Structures are given as structure tokens and as C-alpha cells.
Simulated scan of single mutants.
Amino acid sequence: MTRPLRAVAVSGGLQRPSKAVALSEHLLDLIADAIPCEQRLVELGQLAPHFAGAVWRSQLPDVVERELAAVEQADVLVVATPVYRGSYTGLFKHFFDFIHQDALIDKPVLLAATGGSERHALVIDHQLRPLFSFFQARTLPLGVYATDQDFSDYRLQNVALIQRAQLAVQRALPLLGLAKLARSVHAEDVVAT
């Protein structure tokens, strides 16, 4: 018996409620609708007091270590950040600085961002893709960028954006299926030894 897919979202939003959290949850739900999975949301705004001043992973408390381990052990990642001065938040980058450099190799990553206007939509390709390329992750072809106008009471309301999110997940499914298959093959190898 194989375990369900582990889908982990990391939201770089610093406050609650947060559009980045809302977008992360929406994307996690779309994945769960398409393929059985365990969902986990890592909210960096909630974790900030526990890791913002740390320089080394060995300095981190267990609460942060558990979230880092969840990201490293995920089968698929959803990452969403608000745009701050044309890039991801510093806290978002600081969190990923603690991730082991080999932990995300070949891991499917769905990239998402939120911003005040369309002028920052390229943050996905110019900032997030290079970050996850360093980790040798498989960034999924379609990113999802949402503006303030796409939300109503922290829920997605723009039909075109909702359709893009659905398409992004739909196009990701072959890779997620491969991740699930790889897990079952690995599990069979472990049982056989």
C-alpha cells in the first residue's frame, strides 16, 4: 500500500489573512481534487519569530525544523509569495536558505505570487524560477500570479485567474503522477530488501 502524495505549500505572506495564503490554499485544494494527497500549509508569517534571526539551521527550534523537513519530504511543492520591491519577500528567501541544497532535486514546484498590480507578474519567471533552478527542482510550466483585484474577501474571484490555476494544476498532473509512481517503486524496493 502506498501513501498518499504529500503536497506542501509555502506561503511567504507575513500577515493573516493573506492573499498569498489564500492562493496557496486554493492551489492545494485543486491538487487534492485531482489526486489523493495529504495537504500541509507552511505560513512563514506565523513562523517568522522562530527563525528570522537565525543564521544556521542548527540554531532553529523544532517548530521550524518540522516545517523545513515537511518541505524537503514533500512530493510536490506550491510556493506563493507576495511581491515586495519587485521580488519575493526576504523572509521567503531566508526560509529557503535553510533548505538542504539537494533536497528539492526533481521535485515538482508550482510557482505563484501576489501583487498590487500586473506590473510585477514577471516575478515568477525572473525571481522564483531561478531560485528553484538552483535547487534543481522541476518548476512547473505555468505559474499563477494574482493581483489585489483578483480577490474578494481573501477568496479568488477572477474567473480567468481561477481557470489559469486549474490549467496549471492540470498540466502538472503528469509530473505528479510520476512522483507518485516513483514513490511506489521506491517503496517496493525498500520492501524487497
Rank of each mutant, 00 (worst) to 15 (best):
A160E: 14
A168Q: 00
V185E: 14
F135S: 04
V63L: 08
R57P: 01
D153C: 11
L161W: 03
E38F: 02
L176P: 01
Y84H: 15
D33A: 14
Q15M: 12
S11I: 01
T81E: 05
L173Y: 00
S152E: 15
R6Y: 05
V76R: 00
V159G: 07
F96G: 02
L167N: 07
A80Y: 00
V63E: 12
H26N: 11
V8T: 02
A20C: 06
G115K: 03
I31V: 11
L161M: 06
S11Y: 00
V10I: 11
P17V: 05
L68G: 03
S87Q: 12
D125I: 09
V79N: 01
A179S: 14
A34Q: 12
G45I: 05
F134N: 09
H126C: 11
Q166E: 14
L131V: 13
K93D: 08
A32V: 03
L60Q: 03
L47D: 06
Q127E: 14
G143I: 04
Q15Y: 11
V83R: 01
P82V: 07
Q59S: 13
N158C: 09
L173W: 00
V109K: 01
C37E: 07
Q170F: 06
D189L: 15
L175P: 01
A70Y: 02
A7T: 01
G116E: 10
L104A: 04
V64A: 02
A192G: 06
P82S: 12
Q157P: 07
L30Y: 00
Q127I: 15
F95V: 08
E65V: 11
G13T: 05
A187I: 10
Y154T: 04
S184A: 14
A146E: 04
A182I: 09
S152M: 14
D102Q: 15
P49L: 02
A192C: 08
L122M: 10
L131D: 05
H120N: 14
R66I: 10
A52P: 01
Q166H: 12
R66G: 06
D125K: 08
L47E: 05
Q149L: 13
D189A: 13
D148P: 02
K19Q: 15
D62V: 13
P130E: 10
A48F: 02
V123Q: 05
D97F: 00
S117Y: 09
E67P: 00
L167R: 10
L23C: 03
V159T: 12
P36A: 09
A112T: 06
A48K: 09
V109Y: 00
A192D: 12
R171D: 10
A48L: 11
I162P: 01
R40K: 12
L173N: 02
P36G: 04
L30E: 06
L23T: 01
S24W: 03
F151C: 08
R183F: 11
L175Q: 12
P82G: 12
Q101H: 15
